[in-house]
Structure formats: structure tokens, C-alpha cells
Simulated scan of single mutants.
Amino acid sequence: MPLVALPVCLWRLPIAFGYGMGGEVLPPSPWNIAYVVGLSVLSEAFALLGFGLVRRWGELVPTWVPKWGGRRIPPFAATLPATIAGLFFTALMVHWAYGAFRLGGADGFPYTEGWDVLAMTVSGLFTLWGPLLLALTFAYHRRRRPR
């Protein structure tokens, strides 16, 4: 999942610094730079959290956590938020994809000069985030359910 989010995170960075890639240009300001860079870092951080559904560290509270360290994480505590997030991102991306990929008569991306093709490519990868998170959550649930 981090590799699915990475192209969009990298795509956003020039926009933060005032390069519109054939579209609307954001005025370069500290707020815009902080917002876009922060959004990219946050997106990547949440994508990396998906590893917790397939790695051992997603089953136990880290030992450095006071009072809770070393305890087993209840499967429901991981599957419920992951399922909600997966459904949310799937619905959001389906809604967003209609405009991005010119479905249903939408205008598409506001980019020109070939930048729209690149935008559709990196954004197309990003639309996989929700379904991938749901697949990881289902696998986590199957692995951790009581036998």
C-alpha cells in the first residue's frame, strides 16, 4: 500500500511549490507547502500502518508502551477501524474517480499539456488503496479469528 500512495504523494509536491503542471497554480506560501507536504507524509504514514495487518507488530502492543506493552491486541480493535477506513476510502475513490477519469460526462482533471495523463495514472493507483486495505483486513481477520 505504501507503493500505491507514493506516486500521488510525489505528484503533489511540485504543486506545493507553485508549479501547477498545466493546471491551477497555488501561490507559493508557507501554508500551502506545509499543507501539501503534510498531506503527503500523513498519507504515506497511514499507508505504512497497513503493514500492521500482515506483520507480527500488528498483533502485540509494543513493549515500550507503559502498562500495555506486550499485550495481545484484540482482533476487533484492528479490524473495525481498518474496515471502516477501507470502506470510506473505497467510497471516496469511487466518487472521485468519476470526475478524474471523465466518467458520467465529468470534465476530468484540470491539467493540460499531457499532465492529465500522468495525473490519471498516479491517481488510478491511489484508487486501489481502499480495496487493498479491505483485502488486508479480511486476511487479518481470517488469520486472527478463533479456531
Rank of each mutant, 00 (worst) to 15 (best):
Met1Arg: 05
Pro2Asn: 14
Val4Lys: 03
Val4Leu: 15
Ala5Cys: 05
Leu6Asp: 00
Cys9Met: 13
Cys9Glu: 07
Pro14Lys: 10
Ile15Met: 13
Ala16Met: 02
Gly18Val: 00
Gly18Pro: 06
Gly18His: 04
Tyr19Thr: 12
Tyr19Leu: 13
Gly20Ser: 06
Met21Ile: 02
Gly22Ser: 04
Leu26Val: 09
Leu26Ile: 07
Pro27Cys: 04
Pro27Phe: 04
Pro27Val: 07
Trp31Val: 11
Asn32Arg: 05
Ile33Asn: 09
Ala34Cys: 02
Tyr35Arg: 08
Val37Cys: 14
Val41Phe: 15
Val41Asn: 09
Glu44Ile: 15
Glu44Thr: 14
Phe46Ser: 07
Ala47Gly: 04
Leu49Glu: 06
Leu49Pro: 10
Leu49Cys: 14
Gly50Val: 01
Phe51His: 12
Arg55Met: 10
Arg55Tyr: 07
Glu59Asp: 15
Trp64Thr: 04
Gly69Lys: 01
Arg71Glu: 11
Arg72Ser: 10
Pro75Gly: 12
Phe76Gln: 10
Phe76Leu: 15
Ala78Pro: 01
Ala78Gly: 11
Thr79Ile: 11
Leu80Ala: 15
Ala82Thr: 01
Gly86Pro: 00
Phe88Asp: 11
Phe89Ile: 09
Ala91Leu: 14
Met93Pro: 09
His95Trp: 15
Trp96Tyr: 15
Trp96Lys: 03
Gly99Asp: 06
Gly99Lys: 09
Gly99Phe: 14
Ala100Lys: 00
Arg102Thr: 02
Ala106Arg: 01
Asp107Leu: 13
Asp107Ile: 14
Phe109Asn: 09
Trp115His: 14
Trp115Met: 11
Asp116Cys: 07
Val117Gly: 10
Val117Ala: 13
Leu118Glu: 02
Ala119Leu: 08
Ala119Arg: 03
Ala119Lys: 12
Met120Gly: 12
Thr121Gln: 04
Ser123Glu: 01
Ser123Lys: 05
Gly124Tyr: 12
Gly124Pro: 07
Thr127Ala: 15
Thr127Ser: 09
Leu128Phe: 05
Leu133Glu: 10
Tyr140Met: 07
Arg142Asp: 08
Arg142Glu: 12
Arg143Asp: 05
Arg143Tyr: 09
